[in-house]
Design a protein around this nucleic acid. Structure first.
Lengths: 216, 216
DNA sequence: TCAAAAGTGTTCCTTCTACACCCATGT
DNA sequence: ACATGGGTGTAGAAGGAACACTTTTGA
């Protein structure tokens, strides 16, 4: 009468400039979110990270626990612990089993998967405004235009260039490298880096998700 | 090799105007957060609500899932699903086993319990600013001064009366009842009610925590 | 010289902050 | 009449939204 414990992940990535969610093919052309049971005594975070690594070959750039639900209808009774997972852009292997499409275009078979995806997008959008979470969807150095595109893609709406740049500069999470990228018949763009770590990143995530504390 | 599933709650209440957390006495004069395993196939939310009801005799005014952690060190391996629980003010029975003291004054034995309490306070504080969660810590009708005191207690800092009232009125979550409470040798205070339900209350809580949807 | 993206300031309006006095009541 | 908490407005600062043109480059 113990439930089956399952870790589910909702992977996101920017691919060719498009904000995508990654799912697995199931039978009948519908999709499911990746999931697996943790190993015995394996921490939940580790199980989520391992799941992503086993599927794609690399560990995620970022992950965050979303919510835990129980599913009583299925047999055996299940406990799903869900994670949002962010992947650096375009780091796929051609043979990777994940199918990446825009979140609203994903055809998920299970109701729970649909709700988890909806919720994950909601959380990610909300976190854009008060954390530096967007940086996990970018390479280590990037142009301001790239950064703005990430925001526009995730939020699903265009942003004003001048206001966006002013706000980003003001927030202090950006450091200009003095490097310029030239990549077309136009003015080169300065590359930025992301001001080190912590700061507001971890704000509002639980203490034990920051430190890997020794729990008693 | 399956873990033991446990639901833990972090109860909060305003008692005699003081923001308190409720804990249980354990051996050696230290405290623990209330917890129990869900019944077979019992939804987690139901298990949390039932836990609170069994302890205090009434269901909580509000509850919200916090975080799920695994504790590998203990035997058997445990999965803790934690909930914040809000109780209407001063609705205790004298014989209730919970000990209510200010969150920073609670002496919890377990490291996990301390982290859960810290996180619960953090979440509650954050939610004060963008939801109407404070109303669950008040009776159905209340004065603006009472409401302000809840904010001050939870945030741990004084607020400006005029700015507070302006913001609350502007937010539209208040309805003045035309009733005035006289209770001392001073001007009577108008009672307010909380503008119906939903609205921004549920904003940023997962969809399945609002509807009790049928999961597949 | 043209096309294409990078970069840059100002004005207006809304929102936040700080702050002090009069009002209605019971004793 | 006085003590007690209830109630109100304003001015200045800061932050957000709207908006258009110049710069640098490669072809």
């Amino acid at each position: 009468v113990e439930p089956r414990l399952t870790v589910v992940i909702v992977p996101f990535q920017i691919r060719q400039g498009i904000f995508c969610a990654g799912t697995l093919m199931s039978e009948d052309d519908t999709r499911v979110l990746p999931s697996h049971p943790p190993a015995t005594r394996e921490p939940l975070d580790t199980a989520a990270e391992r799941l992503m690594t086993e599927i794609t070959g690399h560990p995620p750039a970022y992950q965050e626990q979303l919510y835990t639900i129980s599913i009583e209808q299925r047999d055996p009774w299940r406990i799903l612990v869900s994670y949002m997972v962010l992947v650096a852009p375009d780091t796929d292997r051609p043979d990777e089993p994940l199918i990446w499409v825009r979140p609203e275009a994903v055809l998920l078979r299970r109701e729970t998967d649909r709700m988890l995806l909806e919720y994950a997008v909601m959380r990610l959008r909300a976190k854009l405004s008060y954390t530096n979470i967007a940086f996990h969807l970018l390479p280590p150095s990037f142009t301001l235009t790239q950064l703005q595109q990430v925001y526009e893609q995730v939020l699903g709406q265009p942003l004003d260039k001048r206001n966006f740049r002013r706000r980003m500069r003001a927030s202090g999470i950006l450091t200009p490298t003095a490097v310029f990228r030239r990549e077309g018949s136009h003015r080169p763009a300065e590359l930025y880096r992301f001001t080190s770590d912590s700061e507001q990143e971890t704000y509002l995530t639980p203490p034990w998700a920051r430190l890997d504390a020794n729990l008693s």
